[in-house]
């Protein structure tokens, strides 16, 4: 690069550096996303795409057959998310708080072991738990028997009233490592001086956690919540691996991801419908976008960040 004139030369290298990432990202991610939104306004009539406005959405929300499935999937999805928020994140915070004690022995072992389920694929987790909870095999009943609770056993994955909660807890089992690690990192980044000052004031142990550490890690808890939200409203794999595309029993575990898959791709007697699939994907997009906006503008800006 030679500077021959006093004016800024065209800096081609910026374009060269940016081009591959921007091109791939735009072509494979952004354009298809808008393409999908666009498809949701069309319908195939006599082999041609015809613009139908909001008709697909009207069918989805108005036609009793469609809307029953849709609201079922949406409600299940919210329950799935609530289980994660109520179980996964508190357990993750508790484990992280215990691990962050610098004088605890075997920290590395616990960290490594508890993170193992997170690296396993959904297929392993789904099938593995299906086998363990299966009444045929009897691992779960014999464990419950050992602690004298055999009467509590039920084929949880096969019962409509328990199946979704069970799957939610399996998913919590799989992903608890992520909030644990992120909170652990946040706790480690709290400067020692602050904790020492707290100790000088006699704030130790539990009250130190509630009064000093928890307020400092609130931004991380916010990030975990939004990651959980996006992950849950986009979930599919675990339910598909454990219960199949029909999300049995009797659609009790159907969430938006499996509903989208069945609608778009078809399953058994149902014929795939890309336009209705796009409509569902568009609604999922709106839900996730709403969640992200609530987080960015409603929560993140109100959380006080402390600069150390």
């Amino acid at each position: 690069m030679t500077v021959s004139s006093p004016r800024m030369p065209v800096r081609w290298h910026i374009g060269v550096f940016l081009a591959p990432a921007v091109l791939v990202y735009t072509a494979i991610m952004v354009l298809p996303l808008f393409g999908t939104l666009q498809l949701s306004f069309f319908r195939v009539v006599d082999g041609r795409d015809v613009f139908v406005g909001l008709d697909n959405f009207r069918t989805l929300l108005g036609d009793p057959r469609w809307s029953a499935s849709f609201w079922n999937a949406l409600g299940n999805n919210f329950w799935f998310f609530l289980i994660h928020m109520a179980v996964q994140n508190p357990i993750g915070i508790l484990l992280a708080a215990l691990l962050s004690n610098p004088r605890l022995r075997m920290r590395a072992f616990y960290r490594t072991a508890i993170f193992v389920p997170t690296i396993l694929s959904f297929v392993i987790v789904g099938f593995g738990w299906k086998l363990i909870l299966s009444p045929i095999w009897g691992v779960a009943p014999s464990i419950l028997d050992a602690v004298g609770l055999k009467s509590l056993f039920a084929p949880w994955l096969g019962k409509e009233e328990y199946a979704l909660t069970t799957l939610g807890l399996i998913s919590v089992w799989q992903f608890v490592g992520i909030p644990m690690m992120l909170i652990y990192a946040a706790l480690l980044s709290i400067p020692d001086e602050i904790l020492e000052a707290a100790e000088c004031d006699g704030i130790t142990g539990m009250s130190q956690f509630w009064k000093i550490k928890l307020p400092l890690i609130l931004p991380s808890i916010g990030i975990i919540s939004i990651l959980t939200f996006v992950g849950n409203f986009n979930a599919f794999d675990l339910i598909y691996a454990a219960q199949g595309a029909l999300a049995g029993p009797n659609y009790a575990t159907d969430i938006l991801g499996t509903f989208l898959y069945r609608t778009f791709f078809g399953f058994q007697l149902q014929i795939g419908d890309p336009n209705m699939g796009s409509a569902i994907a568009s609604i999922m997009f709106l839900i996730i976008l709403m969640g992200v906006c609530i987080y960015l503008f409603g929560i993140q800006t109100r959380l006080r960040r402390y600069q150390f």
Binding site: R11, Y25, A27, I28, L31, G35, T36, L39, A281
Partner: peptide, 29 residues
């Protein structure tokens, strides 16, 4: 350069919006 932070924001959008939502059009592509 002009548009630097806008470009950064554009690329960061994909962190929050899952690529799966574009599946229908990706398959067509």
């Amino acid at each position: 350069f002009r548009g630097n932070s806008l470009m950064g924001l554009y690329l960061a959008l994909g962190i929050m919006i899952p690529i799966r939502l574009g599946t229908v059009a990706i398959l067509q592509l």
